[in-house]
Design a protein around this nucleic acid. Sequence first.
DNA 1: AATGAATGAGGGTTCATTCAT
DNA 2: CATGAATGAACCCTCATTCAT
Lengths: 219, 219, 219, 219
Amino acid sequence: MTMQLADRAGKKRTLPKEKRRTQLIEATIRSIAKNGLSDTTIATVAREAGLSQGIINLHFTSKERLLLETLTFVVDEYKLHWEKALKRAGDESRDQLAALIEVDFLPSICERNKLAVWFAFWSETKSRPTYRQLCSGRDRDYDQTMHELCAKIVSEGQYPLDAALVADGLSAMAIGLWLDMLLGPRRMSRQQALKTVFSHLAGLFPDHFEPVQSERSAV
Amino acid sequence: MTMQLADRAGKKRTLPKEKRRTQLIEATIRSIAKNGLSDTTIATVAREAGLSQGIINLHFTSKERLLLETLTFVVDEYKLHWEKALKRAGDESRDQLAALIEVDFLPSICERNKLAVWFAFWSETKSRPTYRQLCSGRDRDYDQTMHELCAKIVSEGQYPLDAALVADGLSAMAIGLWLDMLLGPRRMSRQQALKTVFSHLAGLFPDHFEPVQSERSAV
Amino acid sequence: MTMQLADRAGKKRTLPKEKRRTQLIEATIRSIAKNGLSDTTIATVAREAGLSQGIINLHFTSKERLLLETLTFVVDEYKLHWEKALKRAGDESRDQLAALIEVDFLPSICERNKLAVWFAFWSETKSRPTYRQLCSGRDRDYDQTMHELCAKIVSEGQYPLDAALVADGLSAMAIGLWLDMLLGPRRMSRQQALKTVFSHLAGLFPDHFEPVQSERSAV
Amino acid sequence: MTMQLADRAGKKRTLPKEKRRTQLIEATIRSIAKNGLSDTTIATVAREAGLSQGIINLHFTSKERLLLETLTFVVDEYKLHWEKALKRAGDESRDQLAALIEVDFLPSICERNKLAVWFAFWSETKSRPTYRQLCSGRDRDYDQTMHELCAKIVSEGQYPLDAALVADGLSAMAIGLWLDMLLGPRRMSRQQALKTVFSHLAGLFPDHFEPVQSERSAV
DNA sequence: AATGAATGAGGGTTCATTCAT
DNA sequence: CATGAATGAACCCTCATTCAT
């Protein structure tokens, strides 16, 4: 409500096209998080943006398109982050894997609004073939990279593990933790989630990752 | 005349109350899997059940109630399974943990229709407090049991691991694998999923679980 | 308004399917006559029928279908009338032609509501190919019959006329008179219209039709 | 920058007021012919004119006004034509009547775009009193003139006909032929339409008009 | 003078719910 | 019990109109 008032006071009535679009996409993300996908209507999005209903069809032609572009927005942002993180991570495969995983728990990535979007679309994927292409699991590049890093580490450490299975498992774990974070921040904080994954890494790859101490069990 | 119609199909027109209810709940599960939660209407459920529209309000008062009872049905079935599995598992904590995890990938539990229901409700959880009570994550008993088993194994094997973190991680991984199975059976089969979890167990608890060979990497 | 009240008082809430459909078609005809085609909305039709808006989609799936069936209704009724009239007319081609023309000016055919429907759809024909098939001009059987009758009369009377042109002209004249009647009953009554056509027939086929005296010019 | 855009197309961005208005009216006529009256929106007109949406309200205040002026435009053009034709026709009533009728089938008058406009407005006349004043039937002067010419010819030729009825019939026939032309140019060409009317004139007034041979029936 | 972003009333349609049968 | 015709609120979308640029 305060938000809305602020909007009204401080903003110009007409905005550059691209600005309006992202403004509406962000309103859509908030609405999905707040109301769920099935209760996200053109009205809720418009209200969230502090604008009129007609503006959505003006900028996105249809609600369906708005939802698609919202999903794309979140997916692209995610991809951008981990690609950047990977570049910055240095040469050690250990560090690269760490970087990749840390991205999943960056505040801007795993804030609940965004997580709500991921899960909303995942849960509709079966009935909407269009969604699947955009976000099946995460994406192939991610899986590929994860697999390669695990393979390198396994061979470096001579671990008796199957790299493909480890990669799948880690990726799955991250998503499961996302769900825990979505369902209630008390159950699982970002810190807690990170510790969980790194604790596993330490168990699996003892020569590459150090043990993690949880507050809960720390004496 | 009515009799005639009833006879024709070979079905009785009136069914015991409880039968009708589960018949409708199963139709709801199929509809959610097929159409997604937001495209599941009273009409799609009734059609899936081969009955008239009015029957849902007759047996469930409202659509909301039908959905709630559908969720409850799936959650209860899940709980029933792992409680039974645990009892049958013997005394070894190793076997009990294995049993607990295997339940997640039982055909009747992780068939895609059921998974679709879990994710459908999870993704709406934020906006519907009612859902959360029913299925936040899984449920407390499950988490508790998982934690205890991990703690026992950790202490048995003297592993340098935090039991709480391992328990959370395993639970999360199972859910992440469910998502993989939901999004496409090719990406992740039940067998593959089981291998993935047990491969991690072998890595974490080498004295309790044996290494797993994936077909993919097997020479 | 009285109509509406009467409806509400005297009718059952639920009606046989076919009855409801014709009831709605008749309401559509009245609405087109009263509001024009472009101002005929689902709301105006429902109000005219004294029913709720949803009922139109229930019985006709879409507004478009309702309009199409309304057009079909009027076209079929017209065709039925002139076919029947032709059978009853006897063997004289003179009488048959007279019968054919008289149909155009039967009260139930050329009441203004119906005429409004004809013109409404004619005027949209260019942009709606579907309409054309249903009512291009009138229909081929009509044109054919008209032509044959004129040909017979021309040859009987040895008139120096082209039967095809006469047939086209008479048909066109009838439609032009319909327009006059639609635009204002004062300008052109049914009687007046009939006289106009028969006056022409008398002029063209003096051996078959007798002169007509108009009130206006009658001394 | 604006200058640049203007230059590129070679058009001036600002046009004399009257030019813009007729440009928009012509675009309206095309849009009505192409899309029908009910699908003629401000957007279709603006697109047809290659201009922005706002311009219509700028020049015509409202859509209603634009439609009204479009109708007026067509009506005035028609009236202008037949008044001019009448003046040029000479003194013979025969020639004057012929001239009057020929105007109806001048290419610029009965091109389909224009006919579409006539019928579009006629079919809405009942619900829009404003339209009726503008174009009921055609207009009184026309009817009056037609009647006088028929009367003169009837008396000249001592025909046993009622002049008023003949005038009405001819006028109606012309409109009916317009409809035939609107619905499909194959059914009725301008030539064919003219022959049809003159064939009737020859039948009615044999001393004034010569018989017409149709191609169809010519041996 | 001209544009086009923005509005919001009203259009067609869907759908949970009611109720007479 | 079971049906399905009927309702009406709420959905998405269109479009005439306004207004800052």
